[in-house]
């Protein structure tokens, strides 16, 4: 079994993975600099994705997601929100939510407004 080096770390905060970066991220740190709460720091290794340090201060406003030039960011609501936000498909009565297993395909209708 795994016996690699392990470190003693304090508990993660309640909401723990608030942001996930996919491999499109080039480490430009634009998201780091737009965050009002400054919850991220640039990664010491150049080009790597930033490090989220003050997770419980994240306000979930999504400013960083909109700032990312390559769309590499996804805002991850805490599990207690994901489990609270349920919708039911009217005809089938099926229930769905963000984060469920075998989800619906995405809906691609853009928001109203033509400003990008």
């Amino acid at each position: 079994m795994l016996t690699m080096k392990k470190f003693a770390l304090p508990n993660q905060s309640g909401p723990c993975r608030v942001l996930s970066f996919d491999d499109k991220c080039v480490g430009c740190n634009k998201c780091v600099n737009v965050c009002p709460m400054d919850v991220m720091i640039p990664n010491p290794e150049k080009g790597e994705e930033p490090i989220v340090v003050f997770t419980e201060e994240c306000w979930f406003c999504g400013g960083c997601v909109q700032e990312c030039p390559v769309g590499a960011l996804t805002l991850v609501a805490p599990a207690k929100q994901r489990i609270s936000t349920i919708w039911k498909r009217k005809e089938t009565g099926e229930e769905f939510r963000v984060g469920m297993t075998n989800p619906l395909p995405p809906v691609t209708t853009p928001p109203s407004g033509n400003r990008k």
Binding site: M1, L2, Q12, S13, C16, R17, S20, P78, K80, R82
Partner: peptide, 24 residues
């Protein structure tokens, strides 16, 4: 019991799961 240990890409901590259980 040991699934979480191998699950390197996991992104839910025990406190986050507990907050969600209490909410439900």
């Amino acid at each position: 019991l040991y699934a979480p240990v191998e699950n390197e890409g996991g992104d839910v901590s025990w406190k986050e799961l507990n907050y969600a259980i209490a909410r439900v």
